[in-house]
């Protein structure tokens, strides 16, 4: 049985993670007025329409790309030695200390409570077309999965193959992959909540909502 209190205590003992912001592509980097110790926020708003705090600007082919904070946190390190230079893709620019939000804590605990269906191989995954449209219109929790059902399309090296779900029946409670992103073998694709686990999952949600206080 899952010990929610113990898990919550563990997370509370170390309630942050380090985020490394890297150059998404090549370009000439310039850091604006950002300083070490500044508080920054990620995208906010109902649809993430309010952009996060700008950290740096990357100029490539005369286009400026503003690199923004992806999460709430505090600036820990800025690679000012790169100011005005051409950087390669993947170069570390800024390091943030990010405090876990309620939703993230919930995600961490749910990953332990849900049945995780894992990627059998490193590949890109998509939901099968009919499932995909259902999720797009009514959300993942509207989909009930059962053993043997054709749920995914697995795509790698120019080939696509259908992938069947195997595991307990239940609703898709969490989706862990993104469109066009490579998923490593063994990484979870979805978290399924079997009907008999529903009360436990609801308990987790309530506990996190009431017991976790977000850091400012």
């Amino acid at each position: 049985m899952l010990d929610i209190s113990k898990l919550l205590e563990e997370i509370k003992a170390s309630p942050y993670e380090e985020l490394v912001i890297t150059a998404p592509h090549t370009g000439v980097v310039s850091f604006g007025s950002i300083k070490v110790g500044d508080r920054v926020i990620g995208a906010t708003g109902t649809w993430g329409e309010i952009p996060g705090t700008p950290l740096a600007t990357l100029q490539r082919e005369r286009n400026d790309k503003i690199i923004r904070a992806t999460q709430k946190g505090v600036v820990e390190k800025i690679h000012t030695e790169l100011e005005g230079t051409f950087v390669e893709a993947g170069t570390e620019l800024v390091r943030l200390r990010h405090f876990l939000s309620k939703d993230e804590v919930l995600g961490i605990i749910l990953k332990k409570a849900l049945y995780l269906f894992e990627a059998p191989e490193r590949a890109k995954y998509y939901f099968a077309p009919d499932i995909d449209s259902k999720i797009k219109s009514s959300g993942s929790q509207s989909v009930t999965v059962h053993d043997g059902m054709e749920l995914f399309i697995m795509s790698r090296m120019k080939r696509e193959a259908p992938l069947n779900y195997s595991g307990p029946d239940g609703v898709i409670y969490a989706v862990y992959f993104q469109h066009n992103e490579n998923i490593d073998s063994g990484a979870p694709l979805i978290g399924v909540c079997p009907p008999d686990q529903l009360s436990l999952i609801e308990d987790v949600v309530v506990r996190v909502q009431t017991e976790w206080t977000e850091q400012e």
């Binding site: 592509h25 090549t26 490539r60 082919e61 390669e88 893709a89 993947g90």
Partner: peptide
Amino acid sequence: LYRVSSYQDANELLAV
């Protein structure tokens, strides 16, 4: 030698 985000991004190639 330059590391880029993708071989299929024209901006990357031209910037390099």
